[in-house]
Design a protein around this nucleic acid. Sequence first.
DNA 1: CTGTTAGCGCGTTCAT
DNA 2: ATGAACGCGCTAACAG
Lengths: 347, 347
Amino acid sequence: MDGGDTKPTKRKPARSASRGVTMEAVGRMAGVSQVTVSRALSDPSKVSAATLRKINEAIAATGFVPNAIAGALASSRSKLITALVPSITNIVYAAMIRAFSQRMREAGYQILLSETGFDPAEEERTIATHLSRRPDAILLTGIHHSPQARRMLLASGIPVVEVWDFTDSPIDICIGFRHVETGRAAAEFAVERGDTAAATISAGDERARRRKAAFSEHFTRLTGTPVAEIDFDEMATVARGRKGMARLIDDHGFTSGIVFCSSDVLAHGAIIEATKRGFAIPGDIAVIGFGDQEFAGDVEPPITTIKVDLEAFGRTAADALLRRFEGSSTPDTAIDLGFEIIRRQSA
Amino acid sequence: MDGGDTKPTKRKPARSASRGVTMEAVGRMAGVSQVTVSRALSDPSKVSAATLRKINEAIAATGFVPNAIAGALASSRSKLITALVPSITNIVYAAMIRAFSQRMREAGYQILLSETGFDPAEEERTIATHLSRRPDAILLTGIHHSPQARRMLLASGIPVVEVWDFTDSPIDICIGFRHVETGRAAAEFAVERGDTAAATISAGDERARRRKAAFSEHFTRLTGTPVAEIDFDEMATVARGRKGMARLIDDHGFTSGIVFCSSDVLAHGAIIEATKRGFAIPGDIAVIGFGDQEFAGDVEPPITTIKVDLEAFGRTAADALLRRFEGSSTPDTAIDLGFEIIRRQSA
DNA sequence: CTGTTAGCGCGTTCAT
DNA sequence: ATGAACGCGCTAACAG
């Protein structure tokens, strides 16, 4: 075929279904080659002013949008970060991811987000599909992952950030706080207040349970008094906070003392229920929440809570990654951002 | 070089920095070609049981994870959907996206999510970068987009889903409800209740303002009474709900009537403030919210609100897309999912 | 059932 | 300052 050709020609298949404008097409229109278009986009200073102008005109005329897929394949940098969170409707994770996304976006990265719903097996599967996108980094919530997941992560060779929990031996980078410490601190806070009875209401998260367990253990150690515990497997809601408090009162005869809730939402519900039943907050029953959510200081009574700086987690994680991308030789492996008890009126 | 070769050999560059295992490598280990590996993964029935086994062994041994970037480039199907929402920390959008994601994930798609923060210019920029990822579809919040954005979207030729608002002439597919109608319905509800005075508190969203405007206009038309309006540019919070109610009482002398809030969060704050000042809800002041959020039925008094089925938006959007991917010839262009007034005790 | 060949659209050399 | 050639890792025909 092509018998008369002097040099082998590449067959250009008839482009019926337009798949989108290519750099090649832009170049043709501007009278330059594809590479020049590429350069004009990645580093305009490498192209003469005249051709740059023509290229920009061609881009405008064609509505060209670069194909990041092809770019990623060629350069093996995807400008993509993937992130796994237990739940995107949980404000705690959403706020963290928002701060992270904003910072990363400013640096030219985009975020592929998935929910794992607290299930390690689901997390493992999701990690695999995320890795197939060849992200430039991956962000995980928590520090507990299946062995297979760890293996895949390590094998991928990409930076891994674990947030929202803390360990001295992270896979790679870790930004978080010690959940157990929050429980201990709350127990100490209760004892200092003079509480001699305590209960807990927790929901949803494995980390919430760890906080609760630490609270109970420490409170019992300090006072010798056992702690009544109400647990919900499902996510925290105001309704469950109410139900938890109702059970504490009805089933455990809890009518005086402090209630440690694993989230402000639960605390809010608990306060509503106790108030409705005529208990004084914090006079009869004191309540301490977790998260310092938007509403915590504005309901009645304002909720005493444990605050963690969600935005800081996101920002710090992004900054650590960005530094790593720039080839920092001394990676910040583990950062404990701590927490703070915000004393308001509910306890 | 390679002087003695009988046929041209492809130069295999020395792979020092392992970029990840390839199908080629897996195939070598299994004693088959790269394509066979590809087939084993995409359609195992096209491969003999024996080779399938060997390939799976090789995959397990190497920890191979397919490169979706390369796959997308070759097939021009990315299995990626990108989505734009005003805010990911707003439960309304988060819940919608969650439902959408889950459905799409079951079908093998992943979601690239970005926040646009109610800014059309930002949306336009974000659409461009999203389009560069060559998604199989794009989901937008709302129906108002810049002309340039519309052009890019149309030019891309990919399915576009607009959610959370309704128009008869969508870019492509539209799933939502008529915000103006909710305001009208609330006004009618108020008049039927016998309210002769009304006020509004709104925040954040352009659509919230449209709901509010429709409420005010309709209420005034029905009763002849003007409506006091409090607006916040920032997002809805309990604090702003309280402040809004405070201003209504202090600045507008509003001590009796109904308050239409653009979100349950605002309504919650408004109720707290009014209650604290000794007003009876709904006896003195009635409050109606929007969203039927998790807590709406569990605070005191339970909040009367306008409910829209967020999960249904997400699911329906996903289903419409999936049907479109399967080549449905009769696309469902515009679906109005409506809304519902949930009467509880606050109004 | 399996292999060969030819791109997908771009970044990356290496020339000029 | 610009271009030619090549390959990133995979899917899509087309052979056999």
